[in-house]
Amino acid sequence: MAVERNLWASLRATTIARVGLGRAGDAPPLGDLLTFQLAHARARDAVGTTLDVARLTAELQPLHVRQVSSLARDRIQYLRRPDLGRQLDRSWADDLSRGPFDAVFVVADGLSAKAVNDNAAAFISACMDRLASWRFAPIVLAQQARVAIGDEIGSRLEASLAVVLIGERPGLSVPHSMGVYITYNPQPGRTDAQRNCISNIHADGLNPEQAAQKAAWLMSEALARKLTGVDLKDAAPDAGGLGIEKGGES
């Protein structure tokens, strides 16, 4: 048994997959079962978390913060109707003062609000430090929101770039991961192919500072080249090393 245990310890170093579990008859042993259930419970809980507006507002000071909501009225409708999560509830929209601005940061709950509660303020602050001369719109906190809500917000604010920070779909190994989607000339109807994405921002992945470095590069290039999406990704000299991906729906 000791030989097996040592063997699996070395094999496990090659993958985070759940290999080398034991057996209780045909089933996994209880320890593995409960470990799995805990991971699933954390992922499920992540979907139900909400934007911590008070915390984000405090951490973002002295920046101005505006709150908006999508047309999805609750979590259940949000999950069932992705189309509603992409549209701005107009009753909030009058509050958005017009630009022009170089960029607007939109902090969206997505599928794991805790991910943005934990990472958004540090990311935004690090980005702004790198782009000191830019004109930024007030930070928009968007509830029940999907990535594309940034298109309508950016368009209303007359911002050249919409930068949407959003909680990614929770996984068993990482329940609270933030993604960042950058869109040039945001307008309703933009597709994911027209965005650039930085994903995997969390305590054990990319930290907010590293993510901000990539984002600032992309934002500068996007403004200079007047585009985002596949063409910008291909233009990046070491896009692979930067971990920059084409957009995906969140």
Binding site: V19, L21, F36
Partner: peptide, 15 residues
């Protein structure tokens, strides 16, 4: 998949 956890596609399949 190993232990029902697909660590690339991030979903749960049969084990």
């Amino acid at each position: 998949v190993p232990g029902s956890d697909d660590v690339m596609l991030n979903y749960q399949s049969a084990s």
